[in-house]
């Protein structure tokens, strides 16, 4: 039986990967590398979810994000930038952006240290059963609304891509 130090170390390692990958995704001037880094970022976040005892959410993250959203983004890249190899233009507002991001990040990290948080409770071993109960009991409205939103989004995406004449 491990003490939780190892899991904290693993969490920090995934966090480090996530931060580096997110930085790479935001800073690189090559679109393809940005997307690859984004994929790495999502996988690292999935690892963090797993260590936070959310195994179902972690796998859904991989399924929907890495297997779905990243592929979609790659498709959009390929359909909109065929043959593009030169680096992207960067904005002239980088200094301002850095200041704002620094302020936001600093404030959030400061807030993180300021809190007096309770100790975590015991996690149920079988997360899926509890999740299912939560979804179809207390959070039923959220579940239904999600269904409607997904349908609307799919129809909207189709309409937009098909153009004005249907």
């Amino acid at each position: 039986m491990l003490d939780s130090d190892v899991q904290i170390a693993l969490f920090a390692a995934f966090g480090g990967i996530a931060v580096i990958a997110a930085l790479a995704a935001v800073l690189t001037r090559y679109l393809l590398r940005s997307i690859v880094a984004f994929g790495a970022f999502l996988t690292a976040i999935a690892g963090q979810f797993y260590i936070l005892a959310a195994d179902f959410v972690a796998l859904i993250q991989i399924f929907v994000y890495v297997g779905g959203v990243v592929v979609l983004i790659l498709f959009a890249l390929m359909l909109s930038a065929v043959g593009q190899k030169h680096p992207l233009a960067v904005s002239e507002h980088r200094g301002l952006g850095a200041v704002v991001a620094y302020a936001v990040g600093g404030w959030l990290v400061w807030a993180a240290f300021g809190q007096d948080l309770p100790k975590a409770g015991q996690v149920p071993g079988e997360t899926v059963a509890f999740l299912g109960r939560a979804f179809l009991d207390q959070q039923l409205v959220a579940f239904e609304v999600i269904g409607i939103i997904l349908l609307a989004a799919v129809v909207a995406a189709l309409v937009i891509v098909r153009g004005e004449r249907l």
């Binding site: 969490f11 930085l23 983004i73 904005s91 959030l108 240290f113």
Partner: peptide, 30 residues
């Protein structure tokens, strides 16, 4: 727990920077 909050704060800051500075629509989405 503080560790989690620190990481999510950092990631949020990085995302904010990206939203503010990038010009390409795909990178904005990312």
């Amino acid at each position: 727990m503080t560790l989690v909050l620190v990481f999510s704060g950092l990631l949020f800051a990085i995302g904010t920077y990206g939203v503010l500075t990038r010009r390409n629509a795909i990178t904005l989405l990312i």
